[in-house]
Design a protein around this nucleic acid. Structure first.
Length: 489
RNA sequence: CGGGGUGUAGCGCAGCCCGGUAGCGCGCGUCGUUCGGGACGACGAGGCCGUGGGUUCGAAUCCCGCCACCCCGACCA
């Protein structure tokens, strides 16, 4: 595997691809632009999904499921939305195949009267449905989430980060007031930030997008932005305040307490399997993946070291006790007594997969009543007493979770810089990458020009941004705050 | 859709310039020795050389067409 820390851009791509494949997370499929998430990758995604789903429920949301196909006409109803998505959609035009001399062909007689679009996102179909659900303020709020796949016909694809089809969740809510909808959008951003930091050990910046980068159809787009180890930014989640745009487009009205008719206020928010990409790029190292204990499908693996089968029997006896102790404490643990691989191979394999803690037990340990414990995040090995080993491991898992977050935070801190002049800005981008805090005159034109000149974009305007007078790095015009620039995935 | 590249064993590649009927590493199978950081030896299985046509006594190799994939742009969670 390429070296993650010294890498050039191509090397880093190589490292990412190798790691993703070698750790058994995902691979490109035979279908153009699509990805196969392999069992191990999916087991991590399931842990993340489970934690997020619980957080959605804890904030009052319910799951539902809407159709994969959306009639083409639905897209025309919200002008900026169609603008944003129309270009990259998969379109269903026929509903039957038939045999012919040239083999199986699309039956020309089975042409659909109205084409169906494979959803690139579900706002339109959902708002069309909500019209029937909402009449009174008593029906509000509607707080619904959907776990689904969506399709965006991307030109170039990359495992987890950009694929033609991807898995995600999309929340779609309807509210009686503007304030309530804005609060909802902000609340869900907080949920995402909480999940990223406390489960994935991924520090994120909370902010709003500039109008240029805003979601098609939104009045405000909130986002969490994370920094990867190659100095590029990754948008890890978004939450949109949609105003009344979709309610107006799909005619969703309600009667308020005073008997007045008004359109409802909307939000939508989503995170995708892209978070898997964030996990790989934020924490991985030259030995493979590093999975934070809280989302690790397997937290502890125990490897026996033996020559004779009597030794294995003696080890297995001790291991069973440790496993029971760990399971009682809620730790997921696997005993790998397979004789197909030697211990050294297993060590490397589990490191590649990022299992947080490895325990090794051999004849020497049996003699002394000890066990070797290795932590994945630092790759340190400790020999501890067998007594109290499970307690030790439980505490270690917690320490690892914190340490991974600390490490990522330190990295972000070391790679966040201020630039006050154009030259300084370009130099920082060129040499260090990372987040660059700089003044901007607030116009879309300037933002666009900076993007064209440097490929850097404004990742977000942080929510708790301090006011500070300065001059735009490009135009020199006055600015009241710094914004976050970076090259992004 | 523009610019470049690659298709040979499950994977990674060599062979192509200079045509003579396919090879290396990893992986895989069996047996034995090993086993505290990716073991070693012996034997073995596995390929219409992307595809269609042409040149030739003979094509992985030369020529023409097609297809697929990858990289760099434009598009993007």
């Amino acid at each position: 595997m390429a070296n993650v820390l010294t890498s050039k851009e191509e090397d880093y791509s190589q490292w990412y691809n190798d790691l993703t494949r070698e750790a058994g997370l995902a691979e490109h499929s035979a279908v153009r632009g699509c990805m196969v998430i392999k069992p191990y990758g999916y087991s991590i995604w399931e842990k993340m999904q489970g934690a997020l789903d619980q957080m959605f429920k804890d904030t009052g949301h319910s799951n539902a499921y809407f159709p994969l196909f959306i009639p083409k006409s639905f897209f025309a109803k919200e002008a900026s939305h169609v603008e944003g998505f129309a270009k990259e959609c998969a379109v269903v035009t026929h509903y039957r195949l038939k045999d012919s001399e040239d083999g199986i062909i699309v039956d020309p007689d089975a042409k659909l009267e109205e084409e169906l679009i494979v959803r690139p996102t579900s706002e339109t179909i959902i708002w069309n449905t909500y019209r029937g659900w909402i009449q009174s303020y008593r029906d509000l709020p509607v707080l619904v989430n959907q776990w689904a796949n969506v399709v965006r016909w991307e030109m170039r694809t990359r495992l987890f980060l950009r694929t033609a089809e991807f898995l995600w969740q999309e929340g779609h809510t309807a509210h009686a007031t503007r304030d309530e909808a804005v609060r909802e959008a902000e609340k869900m951003l907080d949920v995402y930030a909480d999940f990223a930091e406390n489960w994935m050990a991924l520090p994120v910046l909370k902010g709003v997008k500039t109008p240029n980068e805003r979601f098609a159809g939104a009045l405000e787009t909130y986002c969490i932005e994370a920094l990867m180890q190659d100095g590029k930014a990754l948008q890890a989640g978004t939450s949109h305040f949609l105003g009344q745009n979709f309610a107006k487009a799909f005619d969703v009205k309600f009667t308020d307490r005073d008997g007045k008719l008004d359109h409802v206020w909307a939000t939508s928010w989503g995170v995708s399997t892209r978070l898997m990409g964030a996990l790989i790029m934020a924490h991985g190292d030259d030995h493979g993946l590093v999975v934070p204990p809280k989302i690790a499908p397997l937290q502890v693996v125990i490897v026996p070291i033996y020559k004779k089968s009597e030794e294995l029997d003696a080890i297995s006896e001790v291991v069973e006790k440790i496993m029971n102790d760990l399971k009682k404490r809620g730790v997921s643990v696997k005993y790998d007594d397979s004789d197909k691989q030697r211990p050294g191979f297993k060590f490397a394999e589990y490191e590649l997969k990022g299992i947080p803690v490895r325990m090794a037990i051999g004849p020497r340990d049996l003699e002394k009543g000890t066990v070797e414990v290795a932590r994945r995040d630092t790759r340190e090995k400790m020999t501890i007493s067998m007594e109290g080993a499970s307690q030790y491991v439980v505490e270690l898992l917690d320490e690892i979770q914190q340490n991974i977050f600390r490490k990522a935070s330190d990295f972000r801190k070391a790679n966040t810089h201020q630039a006050d002049t154009w030259d300084e800005f370009c130099q920082l981008l060129e040499e260090k990458g990372g987040f660059i805090m700089a003044h901007w005159d607030g116009t879309p034109e300037t933002e666009q020009q900076i993007k064209e000149k440097t490929k850097a974009t404004i990742r977000c305007i942080p929510l708790d941004n301090p006011e500070e007078n300065g001059k735009c790095i490009l135009t020199g015009k006055p600015s009241g705050q710094r914004v976050v620039f970076a090259k992004a995935y």
